[in-house]
């Protein structure tokens, strides 16, 4: 299982901060696609992703036990 951490407005969209999801061997992009369908999460295409607190791109392959954080980029100031 992959541990998913949802930051900022994503936490509100899903109604919780963390969840576990099947994703061993998936890429980050595939996980995003799966979450988009299962939870109707909008705007996952443009969020930053951290895998185990390390910045990761869409091609990164996930393994059981990984923690994936989705972090919306912020532009205001």
């Amino acid at each position: 299982m992959i541990n998913v951490l949802l930051f900022a407005q994503l936490k509100d969209e899903l109604g919780k901060e963390t969840l576990s999801i099947e994703g061993n061997g998936m890429s980050v992009a595939q996980l995003k696609g799966k979450m988009k369908i299962e939870f109707q999460l909008e705007g996952l295409e443009t969020v930053m992703t951290a895998v185990n607190e390390e910045f990761a791109d869409d091609e990164t392959i996930l393994s059981d036990g990984d923690t994936v954080a989705f972090i919306p980029p912020v532009s205001g100031g």
Partner: peptide, 9 residues
């Protein structure tokens, strides 16, 4: 929401 995270680069 009481969140804080550092992300290594």
């Amino acid at each position: 929401r009481n969140q804080y995270q550092t992300v290594r680069l």
